[in-house]
């Protein structure tokens, strides 16, 4: 408990990693996200909560420009990563996504072996010069994702043959193998059973030591368990953003309180 409080306090002193100012997103004629300002800190887990369709996943996908793959989507405002605007025409979205990794709602391992799944990112970005270096990256990533002990004897078997929770941890290992600076997670536990969820949550807390983690979740308990900062979205607006403990115990906005106590959603 004591330890937790120390962690909570050190958050305030951390530097900003991603800074979003006045972000607007339109899907065709739909105004999906209205004027969102968020600072995402280094080595911190930030949770985005809110009812379905509130724009939290949309905002998450803005942070690594995954929305670029949707033709009707338009993003305005500024999002900076280490002070550099990621929507600047000189920024290559492909390079950006190597720095800002992503884990999806449904585990989506490639139909390849476990080894090749993890080695995919390092290979396309040329992170390993030799087979030994690649082996090293795969092992470290699988260890960080708490999958090494289960997978080390079956690295050559297909990743699709793992259980749901193992698949999701494989996807996390795959994302951290490219050594990103930020890890985005879009409801990473919604397709998992409670035991697998607990494992992934534990993992998220450990990952905080090396990355900034941003997690979208429908479960408020999960947000309270894993995050230090929480942002509450409602109908495309960022309603409240602050320390997780403060948001859940003394929310400033009546809408946040209504959502947390289960009156809207």
């Amino acid at each position: 408990m004591d330890d937790m409080r120390i962690v909570e306090r050190t958050v305030n002193t951390k530097a900003s990693k991603i800074s979003a100012k006045g972000v607007q997103v339109h899907y065709g004629a739909t105004h999906a996200l209205k004027d969102v300002d968020v600072e995402i800190l280094e080595n911190t887990v930030t949770a985005f909560i809110g009812p379905s369709g509130c724009g939290k996943s949309t905002f998450l996908r803005c942070l690594n420009r995954m929305n670029d793959t949707i033709p009707s989507c338009r993003v305005d405002g500024s999002i900076t990563l280490d002070g550099e605007n990621i929507y600047d025409p000189r920024v290559d979205p492909v390079r950006l996504r190597a720095r800002v990794g992503m884990v999806f709602q449904k585990p989506n391992p490639f139909p390849k072996s476990i080894y090749d799944n993890v080695a995919y990112g390092p290979k396309i970005h040329g992170l390993a010069r030799t087979k030994a270096e690649l082996d090293e990256i795969v092992e470290t990533s699988l260890r960080k994702a708490a999958l090494w002990n289960e997978a080390k004897d079956r690295l050559a078997s297909p990743g699709t043959g793992l259980s749901g929770g193992q698949q999701q941890r494989l996807c996390i290992a795959r994302a951290i193998a490219t050594s990103p600076e930020v890890l985005l997670m879009d409801e990473p536990c919604s397709a998992l059973d409670p035991i697998a969820t607990a494992q992934v949550e534990e993992l998220i807390d450990e990952l905080r030591a090396s990355f900034s983690v941003v997690i979208v979740t429908h479960s408020m308990q999960q947000a309270a368990r894993v995050s230090q900062k929480t942002a509450f979205f409602h109908l495309g607006n960022l309603v409240e953003y602050g320390e997780t403990g403060q948001v859940f115990t003394t929310p400033q906005d009546p809408r946040t309180e209504a959502y947390i106590t289960g009156r809207i959603g």
Partner: peptide
């Protein structure tokens, strides 16, 4: 999405 998300 998985592949693009890794910067491919």
């Amino acid at each position: 999405d998985g592949s693009y998300g890794l910067g491919a």
